[in-house]
């Protein structure tokens, strides 16, 4: 890549400390290659253009790499931490079951063997940010096991993709949810996509709806385009009463497939940080030394890049 080329040149230039780096000059063509016509190094303007384009391409690749690989690591970490929290809460029966629950609080444990979901910690809230932690419970619906229809959203591509195999659930499969009110078994009743009929169950029973995104064809697996729903109803037990105080409306960013527009400001902030870090990096390379700069700069750069990519993915639909 052109960056490395020019960097190598610069490094070669500044190996001897104390010397002013010599300006880029055209090297005389070695006589052995005299006969081959070749191009020299790009001009300054072209170098800058190459640099910018390369940076942007790198950022794009970084974004793809981040969302497909690094976010899973992040989600695994969050799930481990939340599992420890939830385990303690369930043992003490202090996991919240009603009222106003702070977003991000773990409230339930979700298992569905048929869909490869084991011990998933469900948090409260279905914002993009909340779904980065794992499956999220929609705040204006009752908790799983309570009367009514409880809705749990989950991602299918990024951040661990907990619901990536949701489509493999068949009618009759069991979904187990554990909350502070007990262990509930739900039986899958139907899988619906756009245009499928959706009978409205009575309010007396407890129902569960899992929502994620899916697509087919070339987009399958990494670029979902529509939401799918899995409906399940409680079997073998009576629904629990719903404590009062639940919110009746939720933010627009918590709807299925909605992005969190408030992350824009944060995105701009992180972009500024990125620019600052890169400028500092470049400046430090000249003043400080390449090795030092690389050792200090690379983690910083990765951190800022990670944060910027996370913020950018918050702007995207929350079920991806």
């Amino acid at each position: 890549m052109s960056i490395r080329t020019s960097e190598r040149e610069e490094r070669t230039q500044s190996v001897a400390p104390g010397h002013d780096p010599a300006p880029i000059v055209e090297e005389p063509v070695p006589s052995s290659k005299k006969r081959r016509r070749h191009r020299g190094h790009p001009s300054r303007g072209a170098s800058i253009a190459i640099a910018v384009l390369a940076v942007l391409a790198g950022l794009a690749v970084w974004f793809v790499f981040h969302s497909l690989v690094l976010t899973s690591l992040q989600e695994h970490g969050s799930q481990a931490r939340l599992y420890a929290l939830l385990r303690e809460d369930l043992a003490n029966a202090t996991a919240p079951v009603g009222g106003t629950i702070v977003s991000g609080t773990p409230i339930a444990l979700l298992d569905a063997d048929a869909a490869g979901m084991h011990d998933l910690v469900v948090v409260e809230g279905t914002d993009s940010k909340d779904l980065m932690l794992g499956p999220g419970h929609q705040r204006d619906t009752p908790l799983p096991g309570q009367q009514g229809i409880s809705v749990i959203d989950g991602r299918s591509v990024t951040y661990g993709a907990p619901f990536r195999s949701l489509e493999q659930l068949a009618v009759g499969d069991e979904i187990h949810v554990t909350t502070s009110q007990g262990e509930f078994t739900f039986r899958v009743e139907r899988l619906r996509g756009p245009g499928d009929p959706a009978p409205i169950p009575s309010e007396d029973s407890a129902n569960l709806t899992l929502v994620t995104s899916a697509s087919s064809g070339w987009r399958g697996g990494w670029a979902p385009d529509h939401a799918i729903f899995v409906d399940a109803s409680l079997t073998g037990a009576d629904p629990q009463p719903t404590p009062p105080g639940r919110p009746t409306t939720i933010e627009a960013s918590e709807q299925p497939m909605a992005g969190d527009a408030s992350a824009r400001i944060l995105g701009i902030f992180w972009f500024q940080q990125l620019v600052i870090v890169v400028v500092a990096f470049v400046w430090a390379r000249r003043r400080w030394g390449p090795w030092q700069t690389w050792i200090v700069g690379v983690p910083l750069l990765i951190a800022v890049l990670w944060a910027a990519a996370s913020t950018f993915s918050r702007l995207l639909p929350n079920l991806i």
Binding site: V64, V157, A223, L319
Partner: peptide, 20 residues
């Protein structure tokens, strides 16, 4: 009996392919 509406992801769903 309702009908499951199409909840589209819009252009945001194409983030990864677009980025690549």
């Amino acid at each position: 009996i309702g009908e499951t509406l199409s909840v589209g992801s819009g252009p945001g769903g194409l983030a990864a392919p677009l980025a690549l």
